[in-house]
Deep mutational scan, measured.
Amino acid sequence: KTYTFRVRIVDEETGEEKEIEVTAKSEEEAKKAAEELKKKYPNLKVELE
């Protein structure tokens, strides 16, 4: 079973919002993916929905 999570990304500089879908095998995995995004884009606000 896989879970699909919507991750909302807000670029703090431009105020631009993007939504991406993360497919993960567990909620834990999705959280890790969101953390990776935060590391990659430090000025983005990442929200897991």
Score class of each variant (00 low, 15 high):
residue 45 K to V: 10
residue 27 E to F: 15
residue 13 E to C: 12
residue 5 F to T: 01
residue 34 A to I: 15
residue 27 E to M: 14
residue 48 L to R: 05
residue 1 K to I: 11
residue 36 E to H: 07
residue 11 D to C: 07
residue 20 I to S: 01
residue 19 E to Q: 10
residue 36 E to G: 06
residue 9 I to L: 13
residue 3 Y to K: 05
residue 12 E to A: 10
residue 10 V to G: 02
residue 7 V to L: 10
residue 13 E to M: 10
residue 28 E to F: 08
residue 20 I to G: 00
residue 16 E to G: 03
residue 40 K to C: 10
residue 43 N to V: 04
residue 46 V to Y: 09
residue 48 L to N: 05
residue 48 L to D: 05
residue 34 A to T: 12
residue 29 E to H: 05
residue 44 L to T: 05
residue 15 G to V: 00
residue 7 V to M: 05
residue 41 Y to M: 03
residue 43 N to R: 02
residue 35 E to N: 08
residue 19 E to I: 15
residue 37 L to V: 05
residue 47 E to L: 13
residue 13 E to N: 11
residue 24 A to I: 02
residue 27 E to Y: 15
residue 15 G to F: 02
residue 19 E to W: 15
residue 39 K to D: 05
residue 18 K to N: 08
residue 28 E to A: 11
residue 24 A to G: 09
residue 12 E to L: 12
residue 40 K to F: 07
residue 23 T to F: 14
residue 42 P to S: 05
residue 10 V to W: 12
residue 23 T to S: 10
residue 3 Y to R: 05
residue 24 A to F: 14
residue 34 A to K: 09
residue 43 N to A: 07
residue 42 P to E: 03
residue 7 V to I: 15
residue 6 R to D: 01
residue 28 E to R: 06
residue 22 V to F: 15
residue 28 E to C: 09
residue 46 V to W: 11
residue 10 V to A: 03
residue 9 I to T: 03
residue 39 K to P: 02
residue 22 V to C: 13
residue 24 A to T: 06
residue 2 T to I: 12
residue 5 F to G: 00
residue 27 E to S: 06
residue 7 V to P: 00
residue 41 Y to D: 03
residue 29 E to V: 03
residue 13 E to D: 10
residue 36 E to M: 13
residue 17 E to G: 04
residue 17 E to M: 13
residue 18 K to C: 15
residue 5 F to I: 14
residue 35 E to T: 06
residue 5 F to N: 00
residue 7 V to W: 03
residue 34 A to E: 07
residue 23 T to D: 04
residue 14 T to L: 02
residue 4 T to E: 04
residue 23 T to L: 12
residue 29 E to G: 05
residue 33 A to F: 15
residue 28 E to I: 09
residue 42 P to L: 04
residue 2 T to S: 10
residue 43 N to D: 07
residue 8 R to Q: 07
residue 46 V to M: 06
residue 48 L to K: 04
residue 23 T to E: 12
residue 41 Y to L: 04
residue 21 E to A: 07
residue 36 E to K: 07
residue 32 K to S: 08
residue 36 E to R: 09
residue 46 V to H: 04
residue 6 R to S: 06
residue 14 T to Q: 01
residue 22 V to D: 00
residue 36 E to N: 08
residue 31 K to H: 12
residue 44 L to Y: 12
residue 6 R to G: 02
residue 45 K to E: 05
residue 9 I to C: 07
residue 24 A to Y: 12
residue 43 N to F: 09
residue 1 K to N: 11
residue 25 K to L: 12
residue 2 T to K: 11
residue 39 K to C: 08
residue 3 Y to W: 10
residue 5 F to A: 02
residue 41 Y to G: 02
residue 33 A to L: 13
residue 4 T to A: 05
residue 21 E to P: 02
residue 41 Y to R: 03
residue 48 L to Q: 05
residue 46 V to L: 07
residue 16 E to L: 08
residue 36 E to I: 08
residue 28 E to P: 04
residue 41 Y to C: 05
residue 27 E to C: 15
residue 26 S to K: 01
residue 38 K to T: 07
residue 21 E to W: 15
residue 34 A to R: 07
residue 25 K to R: 12
residue 31 K to W: 14
residue 24 A to R: 04
residue 26 S to W: 01
residue 3 Y to V: 06
residue 30 A to E: 00
residue 13 E to F: 10
residue 33 A to H: 09
residue 33 A to Y: 15
residue 32 K to T: 09
residue 23 T to Y: 14
residue 36 E to A: 10
residue 41 Y to V: 02
residue 33 A to T: 10
residue 25 K to M: 11
residue 27 E to R: 12
residue 26 S to N: 10
residue 45 K to Y: 08
residue 8 R to L: 13
residue 3 Y to T: 05
residue 27 E to T: 06
residue 34 A to M: 15
residue 12 E to F: 07
residue 44 L to V: 07
residue 35 E to M: 11
residue 21 E to F: 15
residue 22 V to K: 00
residue 12 E to D: 08
residue 4 T to C: 12
residue 20 I to F: 12
residue 37 L to E: 02
residue 42 P to H: 05
residue 10 V to F: 13
residue 31 K to N: 08
residue 14 T to I: 02
residue 17 E to Y: 13
residue 14 T to W: 01
residue 17 E to V: 15
residue 36 E to S: 07
residue 41 Y to P: 03
residue 34 A to H: 07
residue 38 K to S: 11
residue 20 I to H: 02
residue 44 L to Q: 06
residue 45 K to P: 03
residue 12 E to Q: 11
residue 20 I to R: 01
residue 44 L to F: 14
residue 40 K to I: 09
residue 1 K to Q: 10
residue 2 T to F: 11
residue 24 A to L: 06
residue 31 K to M: 13
residue 49 E to K: 05
residue 16 E to H: 05
residue 38 K to P: 01
residue 28 E to T: 06
residue 9 I to N: 00
residue 25 K to N: 14
residue 28 E to G: 07
residue 14 T to C: 05
residue 5 F to Q: 01
residue 15 G to H: 03
residue 8 R to H: 11
residue 16 E to Q: 07
residue 2 T to M: 12
residue 8 R to W: 15
residue 10 V to L: 10
residue 43 N to E: 05
residue 32 K to A: 13
residue 32 K to R: 12
residue 40 K to P: 02
residue 34 A to P: 01
residue 30 A to K: 01
residue 37 L to T: 02
residue 37 L to P: 00
residue 28 E to W: 10
residue 27 E to I: 14
residue 34 A to Q: 07
residue 28 E to L: 10
residue 44 L to A: 14
residue 28 E to M: 09
residue 47 E to Q: 11
residue 30 A to I: 08
residue 10 V to C: 06
residue 15 G to Y: 01
residue 3 Y to Q: 05
residue 48 L to W: 15
residue 2 T to C: 14
residue 49 E to C: 08
residue 47 E to I: 15
residue 21 E to S: 10
residue 29 E to M: 06
residue 47 E to G: 05
residue 3 Y to C: 06
residue 19 E to R: 11
residue 3 Y to P: 03
residue 43 N to Q: 07
residue 13 E to L: 12
residue 32 K to C: 09
residue 10 V to M: 07
residue 9 I to A: 03
residue 10 V to T: 12
residue 15 G to K: 03
residue 27 E to D: 04
residue 40 K to V: 09
residue 33 A to V: 14
residue 3 Y to A: 04
residue 18 K to P: 00
residue 26 S to P: 00
residue 36 E to P: 01
residue 1 K to S: 09
residue 30 A to Y: 06
residue 44 L to I: 08
residue 22 V to W: 07
residue 24 A to Q: 01
residue 30 A to V: 06
residue 42 P to D: 03
residue 41 Y to I: 03
residue 21 E to R: 07
residue 46 V to I: 13
residue 6 R to Q: 06
residue 29 E to W: 05
residue 12 E to Y: 08
residue 33 A to N: 04
residue 19 E to N: 09
residue 29 E to Y: 03
residue 38 K to Q: 14
residue 11 D to W: 04
residue 1 K to Y: 10
residue 14 T to V: 01
residue 41 Y to F: 08
residue 8 R to M: 09
residue 45 K to F: 11
residue 32 K to F: 09
residue 37 L to W: 08
residue 43 N to C: 07
residue 45 K to D: 04
residue 37 L to A: 02
residue 42 P to R: 01
residue 40 K to Y: 06
residue 4 T to W: 09
residue 41 Y to K: 03
residue 14 T to N: 04
residue 37 L to G: 01
residue 44 L to G: 05
residue 14 T to H: 02
residue 42 P to W: 03
residue 4 T to F: 07
residue 23 T to C: 10
residue 16 E to T: 07
residue 35 E to H: 08
residue 22 V to Y: 07
residue 43 N to Y: 11
residue 30 A to D: 00
residue 37 L to D: 01
residue 40 K to E: 07
residue 49 E to Q: 15
residue 14 T to F: 01
residue 41 Y to T: 02
residue 14 T to R: 02
residue 8 R to V: 14
residue 14 T to K: 02
residue 48 L to Y: 13
residue 38 K to L: 11
residue 13 E to T: 11
residue 35 E to G: 05
residue 1 K to T: 11
residue 23 T to I: 13
residue 11 D to T: 02
residue 48 L to A: 06
residue 17 E to P: 03
